[in-house]
Simulated scan of single mutants.
Amino acid sequence: MRALLQRVSDARVAVDGRVVGETGPGLLVFVCAMQGDGEDEARKLASRVARLRIFRDESGRMNRALLDAETPSALVVSQFTLAADTRSGNRPGFSTAAPPEEGRRLYQVFTDCLHNLGIATQTGEFGADMAVTLTNDGPVTIWLDTQS
């Protein structure tokens, strides 16, 4: 599985002008299941996201994890385009993304794992055309991939 994390002051996702998920200070997590991924990858990725030390400590250093926050929160948005293959031509290919049904299932496993770790979790709408707005804090943007 792949994830693109953005440390945010706030973020929200809307579908057809209706806000379906939002967060205050925390993480915006774009996530994509790849072909061959299973529940183990979803759980491993959720654990890495929750424990990655990218938040400031008292000294201003990135030394705290989402789990260390007073009120940990994340907005999780499915994004199959993280599977883009751009090695040839000008049009990305997405054949390495998991099929939609499996992607949806693993997206839910990932989100449930974050929630079960004590992180207040909201989501976008799987497969929908979404408008995402955010205020990147730092800016801090981190790429994670369970296959590397």
Rank of each mutant, 00 (worst) to 15 (best):
56 R>I: 10
56 R>M: 09
46 A>Q: 03
136 N>H: 02
55 F>W: 02
77 V>T: 04
71 T>D: 14
16 D>Q: 12
27 L>I: 03
109 V>C: 10
145 D>R: 01
13 V>D: 07
84 A>D: 10
133 T>W: 09
63 N>Y: 08
120 A>T: 08
6 Q>P: 01
140 V>I: 15
143 W>R: 15
17 G>A: 01
81 T>Q: 04
47 S>T: 15
90 N>F: 06
18 R>Y: 04
46 A>E: 08
141 T>I: 13
81 T>D: 11
9 S>R: 10
145 D>I: 00
132 V>N: 04
135 T>M: 13
30 F>M: 02
37 D>T: 08
22 E>Q: 15
5 L>M: 03
46 A>L: 04
11 A>S: 07
43 R>D: 01
107 Y>E: 02
134 L>Q: 11
97 A>T: 05
88 S>Y: 03
27 L>T: 00
38 G>W: 06
69 A>R: 05
104 R>Y: 11
87 R>S: 15
107 Y>W: 09
20 V>K: 03
121 T>N: 07
140 V>C: 10
144 L>N: 14
46 A>K: 00
76 V>L: 05
46 A>Y: 04
90 N>Y: 01
48 R>P: 05
96 T>M: 09
24 G>C: 14
19 V>N: 09
97 A>H: 06
39 E>Q: 12
86 T>P: 01
128 A>M: 11
79 Q>P: 00
91 R>F: 01
47 S>Y: 06
58 E>H: 04
85 D>G: 08
139 P>Q: 12
3 A>H: 00
62 M>V: 12
107 Y>G: 00
11 A>W: 00
113 C>I: 04
134 L>R: 07
103 G>R: 01
111 T>V: 05
72 P>Q: 10
53 R>S: 11
37 D>K: 09
108 Q>G: 04
19 V>H: 14
147 Q>F: 11
82 L>A: 06
105 R>D: 02
106 L>A: 08
24 G>Y: 10
23 T>L: 08
13 V>E: 05
58 E>T: 14
132 V>E: 09
128 A>Q: 13
71 T>L: 13
109 V>K: 05
112 D>V: 13
114 L>V: 00
49 V>P: 00
67 L>E: 11
142 I>Y: 04
117 L>Y: 14
77 V>H: 04
80 F>W: 06
73 S>V: 09
98 A>E: 07
50 A>S: 07
114 L>Q: 03
34 M>P: 00
37 D>Y: 00
2 R>P: 05
129 D>E: 14
125 E>R: 15
42 A>G: 10
37 D>L: 14
46 A>D: 05
4 L>N: 08
80 F>H: 03
41 E>N: 05
64 R>T: 12
7 R>L: 03
99 P>Q: 12
37 D>Q: 14
94 F>S: 04
91 R>M: 04
69 A>S: 15
96 T>C: 08
106 L>D: 10
54 I>H: 06
71 T>S: 11
72 P>S: 11
57 D>I: 14
143 W>D: 11
112 D>N: 12
133 T>Y: 13
62 M>P: 10
105 R>I: 07
54 I>Y: 01
140 V>W: 00
26 G>A: 03
102 E>Y: 10
41 E>M: 09
10 D>G: 11
43 R>H: 13
97 A>N: 04
51 R>E: 15
93 G>K: 14
33 A>N: 02
130 M>F: 10
83 A>V: 02
130 M>K: 02
133 T>A: 09
2 R>Y: 02
127 G>S: 12
69 A>G: 01
55 F>L: 13
18 R>V: 12
18 R>F: 08
25 P>H: 06
111 T>H: 07
